[in-house]
């Protein structure tokens, strides 16, 4: 549990700041529903920049690989993307669970290059929240049970001041995939 030290609003604000600094767009043009690529003009290198800024701010590690790459790693080559770079039915089923049923264009045969455009400010905020919620029960250094934040972004141990050790974004995606697979037996 994150002990509610960092709110979703705070994450949203930090993400907006990272987007404004990276893409030099006007803050007022950013909404939770904005697609970073389609609406805000982000390109692939920009995501690294935005992630880097978030990692520096919150002291955690964002996912290095998108969910599709994890599917391929866990369930075999071709499980998510066919030889022509198109999404399989199973990959679509999984993305619908992750991004919601109502995302337009989410259908088998979709080109893999179109997937990053699904990332919205809201889904990235959620991604950061997931990582922050992986805050361990106790400090890994001194075993202290209390956490604190002085600047509203970095969580530290209330006893020894050590930075909180969050689960990284990739491990969270893997754990999520394992859970979904156990429940739904997609692959």
């Amino acid at each position: 549990m994150s002990q509610n030290l960092i709110t979703e609003e705070k994450v949203y604000e930090e993400l907006k700041k990272a987007i404004v600094e990276t893409l030099r767009v006007d803050e007022s043009s950013i909404t939770p529903e904005s697609s970073l690529i389609n609406d805000l003009g982000a390109e692939s290198l920009d995501f690294l920049d935005i992630n880097y800024r978030l990692e520096q701010a919150f002291g955690m590690k964002m996912a290095r690989h998108f969910v599709l790459e994890h599917i391929e790693d866990m369930f075999g080559e071709g499980a998510a993307i066919d030889e022509d770079g198109r999404l399989t039915e199973k990959a679509i089923e999984l993305l619908k669970i992750r991004f919601g049923e109502n995302v337009p264009d989410l259908k088998p045969g979709m080109d893999m290059d179109e997937v990053p455009a699904l990332l919205t400010v809201k889904s990235m905020t959620q991604g950061v929240m997931d990582i922050l919620q992986s805050l361990p029960e106790k400090c890994t250094k001194c075993g202290g049970p209390e956490w604190k934040t002085e600047d509203g972004v970095k969580i530290k141990c209330a006893s020894c001041g050590e930075n909180a050790a969050f689960t990284n974004g990739d491990d969270l995606i893997k754990a999520w995939l394992t859970r979904v697979q156990e429940e739904k037996k997609i692959f």
Binding site: L23, R24, G41, A42, E43, D46
Partner: peptide, 13 residues
């Protein structure tokens, strides 16, 4: 390379 994205605005800047 890409029209309408961040590299265009950076190039113009």
């Amino acid at each position: 390379r890409k029209t309408g994205g961040s590299s265009q605005s950076k190039a113009e800047e």
